[in-house]
Amino acid sequence: MNSAKYVAGKALRMLTLLIALCIVSFILVKNSPIDPVQAYIGADMMRVSEEQREQIAENWGLDKPPVEQFISWAGAIVQGDFGTSMIYRVPVLTVIGNRFTASLALMGVAWLLSGIFGFLMGVIAGMNKGKLIDRAIKWYCLTLAATPTFWLGLILLMIFSVWLGWFPIGLGVPVGVLSENVTLSEKIYHLILPALTLSIVGVANIALHTRQKLLDVLESDYILFARANGESGLGLVWKHGVRNIMLPAVTLQFASFSELFGGSVLAEQVFSYPGLGQATVQAGLRGDVPLLLGIVLISAIFVFTGNLIGDIICSIVDPRIKEGRASV
């Protein structure tokens, strides 16, 4: 009963979020300097007459009032028709689907690595508070937290691709190979550097939060009592620490879907990696309104799902959250 209510509540929240998002992004695009007709015609500008342009506008309903335009656009979205990308000349959902799988591999790897290493670093630092290793980890994290992703990407490219020549300079696959001939190892080879960039930046946040939480937990009354009962050392941290410090780490890691997405936009741009991030930049720069709006909606769902999964995991780890939810 309670979980049904919970799911319904979350679904409603998502729906309202998407509606609000549609309205806001529609208004933003409507008021942006992008002229959809011009974006559509592109280089053929000279060969299209004024009358033809007006016909296109009329055909698209651009002469109608904005509210009517919104309703017809939103109606299409509801039916799953996101329109056709002007750059790629294929349906928006197809573009997003292709790009998303490429990005997902990149983001997934970066996400997992930063989560695992960040957590471990936080635990190591917290257990050795004030010692050299703690100070080293803290220094590393604070420096990284102040480092822009794209800059780090450039540095890594310079060192590992240009100077050392260990990794390709960019792109998701080798140049001059048919897409059906690209092997998995080649894809992984191209993935390593951008994924590394994203995960190096990603550990800082989670490591610092985990460290602080572990310090709090170690000073808590229940750790004192556990020690009074003869527990000590790693066993103590393992039994009472890990579960208690997992919560912020899980919350943070799943909430970081949005940052990951933002980070991948920059990393993909630097590495010319053909993911969703790069498609976003292209859609923005070249006025591909259908693609841009499609990406906005899909990424909102993506981030929302991330937060939702985080919430669910937290309530499994901490029974108090579930109880609190039931009593609300």
């Binding site: 229940y222 009074a228 039994k239 009472h240 579960r243 208690n244 901490d318 108090r320």
Partner: peptide, 15 residues
């Protein structure tokens, strides 16, 4: 030698 603590806060909240 064992301790009877002040409150339930001395128990691990997640166990």
């Amino acid at each position: 030698i064992s301790l009877i603590p002040q409150s339930v806060n001395y128990l691990d909240p997640l166990m």
